[in-house]
Amino acid sequence: MLTLVIVLLALWLILSIVGFAIEGILWLGVIGVVLFVATAIIGWIRRNARKA
């Protein structure tokens, strides 16, 4: 599970960088940031749930 979260975070980070680098696809950068934050939050919640 942790590997999947790390892979998704890397993918969203790459999409964000590409989206912000190319002005025509700025929307891709915004979506990448939103997905990065959502994945990080979900991963953090699941990690804390396993500890409890």
Rank of each mutant, 00 (worst) to 15 (best):
V5N: 02
I22Y: 13
W27K: 08
A38Y: 03
I14T: 08
R46T: 10
L26K: 15
G24R: 15
T3G: 12
G32F: 10
R46Q: 09
L8A: 14
V30N: 06
V34Q: 01
T3C: 07
S16R: 12
L8G: 10
V5F: 02
G32W: 07
T39M: 00
I25M: 05
T3Q: 11
T39N: 05
R50M: 03
V33L: 09
G32P: 14
G29N: 03
I42R: 07
L26F: 13
A10Q: 01
A49L: 09
M1G: 06
T3W: 12
I42H: 10
R50I: 08
V30P: 10
A52M: 15
E23C: 09
M1E: 05
N48V: 03
I31W: 14
F36N: 04
W27T: 07
V34S: 01
I42A: 14
E23V: 13
W12K: 05
I41D: 02
L13A: 14
W12Q: 04
A49Q: 06
G29H: 06
L15G: 12
R47W: 12
W12T: 04
I41F: 09
W27E: 01
A52K: 15
N48C: 04
G32L: 06
F36S: 04
A21L: 11
V33Q: 04
T3Y: 14
F20T: 04
L8M: 12
W27L: 11
I41L: 09
M1I: 13
V7M: 02
G43S: 01
G29K: 02
L2D: 03
V30K: 09
N48A: 11
L26V: 09
L15A: 10
I6F: 12
V30I: 15
A38N: 04
L8E: 07
L4V: 13
A49Y: 07
T3F: 15
L35A: 02
V30R: 09
L26T: 13
V7Q: 03
L2K: 09
G29D: 03
G24K: 15
A52H: 14
G24H: 14
A21V: 10
I31T: 08
E23Y: 13
G19Y: 01
V5I: 02
I17V: 14
G32M: 07
R50Y: 11
V33M: 08
I14C: 09
L8D: 11
A10P: 05
T39E: 01
A21W: 11
I42C: 08
L2Y: 07
T3V: 12
A21D: 05
I25G: 04
V5S: 06
R46S: 06
L15P: 04
W12C: 09
L26S: 14
G29I: 01
R47P: 06
V34W: 03
